[in-house]
Every structure is written in structure tokens, then in C-alpha cells.
Amino acid sequence: MERRDFLKKSIIVVAGASVPLSALELVDPKEVLAANPDIHWAFLLDTHKCVGCGFCVKACKTENDIPFNAKVTRTWVERYVYTKDDRRYIDSPNGAQDGYTESRIDLGQGNFKEIDPENVGKAFFVPKLCNHCETPPCTQVCPVGATYKTDDGVVLVDRTWCIGCGYCIMACPYGARFFHPVEKVADKCTFCYHRITKGMETACVNACPFGARKMCNINDINDPVTQIIMNQRVGVLKDEFGTKPQAFYIGLAQEVR
């Protein structure tokens, strides 16, 4: 073999060998997923610890570019006030993005209700977000395959593929989806997929000063949060819908749905 031929052929071999390798790495996310086939993300919310500061909502909106002046949010905090004369009031002004700084209840449409402090029986706050259901109704109804559940258990929306029809927003029993006013597509909590896949906490978990929000890999039985879900009394929202939510709550009341 001549020197020129040898060089030519070796260049071809090197080029041929390197292209499919790099192409595999970039194009085939199955390879990436296969590295962590056992991860299944779940969320734990402790309603006893929540004080309604709304730092989670602020952090979520900042991290994920959700406009503060629009009445949409990926996560929100609800306030439940039971009075001694057996009335129940529930509100979440602006999703509690500025926390609860007033004792009056926001009844909507500019109406407010001041409750006599003597009359307050019990009151508590409940943080909410997408439940990332095991059998999500929202992904079933998508007519174009734009929303889906990943192998590690997170429900995502493909922004380039979503046509904005809004079926999924209607289908979600928890009201966790909304129409993104800037991107003009359906939007929802992603469990901060860009953070958790790099080993970080979600923005809301990180921002919560009281430990009311926690995240875990529910397949890892040594994870302390998984231990709580396994060993303590936790509940899920709207169990009867058969959606198998992956957000677990400590201290649920029957009014919280």
C-alpha cells in the first residue's frame, strides 16, 4: 500500500468511526435516559409547615420565565380558613406570588371578605403544583403528541410541537396547566427538569425556608423523603380520578382537592 492510499483510507476510517459516535450522543436521548433507568421523581408537600410566604411561587416564576403580571403560575399556594360558624373560605390571590399579607379573603372579581379573628376556627396553607400523575389525563388528550410523560416520571410539553388547542388545560383535574401568555403554548410545572437532571433541587424546594416542599426519587428506598412517603400517612389529591398523582401531601383535609 502506498503512503498516500494509507493516509486516505485512515482518514476515511477515522471520520466514519467518529461521526456515528457523536451523532448517537447528540441525537439519541434514549442513551442518556438509559444511564438512569430507575429514577422516578416524586414530590412531597407538608401542609403543616407551610406558612404561605409564597417564596416558592416567586422563585418558580423567576426561574422559569413565567410573567409576574399575568394571572398564570406553575405552582401556587392556597389558603383555607374555617370559621367557627362552620363556613369555609378558600383563596389564592395571584397564586400567592406575593404571599399572604392581608387577613381578608379574596372572593374574586374585586370582592373581599374580612373575617373576624375571634371567629377563625382553623386555618392553613396548601402549596400546589402539577402532580405529574402516573396516568396523566392531559397527555392522553393531546391530539399532536406535544405533551408526554418521560421515562423518569415528569410530564412535559413540547413547545415547538404544541398547537395551543387547550385540550390538556381542560383535561387536568387539578388546574395545573395554563396557556403561556408569551410562548403561546400550553405550559405547566416541569419539576424544574433542567435542574433536577443536573442533581439540583427545584427552584421552589430551594426557596422554601420551612421545608414544606421536598423532592425525591421514589424508586430509591434509602432516600429520606421516600422513607417519609413509605412510612408516614400521606395522601394525594383526587385519588378517585385514577390519575395516580406523584405529589404526596402530609396533613390533607377533605376540602383540599
Binding site: 423567576t62 392522553q140 418521560t150 413540547d158 413547545r159 415547538t160 433542567h194
Partner: peptide, 24 residues
């Protein structure tokens, strides 16, 4: 039923810019 999708979209979500550090 639950996950008919474009696989490369998962990578797009992972590539979103991070703003907050872990400062717990």
C-alpha cells in the same frame, strides 16, 4: 397513550438556563 413524543424535546428542557443556585 402517555408518552408519544419527540425525544429530543427532553434534551431541550434539560438545556433551559438555570438561574438560581442551590442556596439551601
Amino acid at each position: 397513550m402517555y408518552s408519544y413524543h419527540r425525544f429530543s424535546n427532553e434534551g431541550e428542557w434539560k438545556a433551559q438556563p438555570i438561574k438560581y443556585r442551590d442556596t439551601g
